[in-house]
């Protein structure tokens, strides 16, 4: 499902070069729940961004669902990302002036779907994450856990085969975080969605079928 072939990412800051990823090769199969871990600066978020098409590698290839996304034009990868990849961030997930329902419909609306169709699908997704009663609330009226759940609902708008989450519980207390992770696990099991999360948390890591440890831009350990 996801393949990285000798992927490197180098950032330039003035005269300095920072190697975020020093040549990573890995495969993630369909339906896996993979956890990427590592200390700060290990390159785990960078790797997630490259898999999600948010950034391009300096060298190497990234294939998602057999599509070479590292070579796609911006519009092409955007459209691919819209329907094939769901994203959940640590914070700033929801647009602050839209209601929960409107936030969930956003990817569908961006794709030009009719409002009625988008609303119906979104209500279904909100019910799936247990928040249909909060559909008309603004983000400022929601708790952190609720925001993350709605972000997950939005990520599932197109039933994507892949769901990427960057520190999804980083901003939450342990109990709320646990419930979010449980939701992700449920989605992975019930829908067969390939889930890749980046986390510092050992508790979060326990949910994963596979754990990939990064250090200094390289895979230190890859296993269950």
């Amino acid at each position: 499902m996801i393949r990285c072939i000798d992927v490197r990412k180098v950032y330039r800051q003035g005269q300095n070069e920072i190697t975020a990823l020093a040549g990573i090769t890995l495969d993630i199969t369909k339906g896996e729940f993979t956890v990427i871990m590592g200390p700060s600066g290990s390159g785990k978020s960078t790797l997630l961004h490259l898999i999600g098409g948010l950034d391009r590698p300096t060298s190497g290839d990234v294939l998602v669902d057999q599509r070479l996304i590292s070579q796609m034009a911006d519009d092409q990868v955007t459209l691919f990302r819209r329907t094939k990849i769901g994203f959940v961030f640590q914070f700033f997930n929801l647009l602050p002036t839209l209601t929960a329902l409107e936030n969930v419909t956003l990817p569908l609306v961006l794709d030009g779907r009719a409002k009625a169709e988008a609303d119906q699908k979104s209500e279904f997704l909100l019910a799936k994450v247990g928040l249909e009663q909060r559909k008309n609330h603004l983000p400022e009226e929601l708790s952190g856990g609720e925001i993350q759940r709605i972000a997950i609902a939005r990520a599932l708008a197109f039933n994507p085969p892949i769901l990427l989450a960057d520190e999804p519980t980083g901003n939450l207390d342990s109990k709320t975080g646990e419930s979010v992770l449980a939701l992700l696990r449920q989605i992975n099991r019930d829908d067969g969605c390939t889930v890749v999360i980046v986390t510092h948390s050992r508790e979060a890591a326990c949910h994963g079928d596979r754990k990939i440890f990064l250090r200094d831009g390289s895979v230190e350990k890859d296993g269950c």
Binding site: G52, L106, L110
Partner: peptide, 16 residues
């Protein structure tokens, strides 16, 4: 900026 970043991340094109 971050809001725009999220919008792009979830699939808004540059044109949008």
């Amino acid at each position: 900026i971050r809001e725009i970043g999220v919008l792009r991340a979830i699939g808004a094109t540059q044109a949008q």
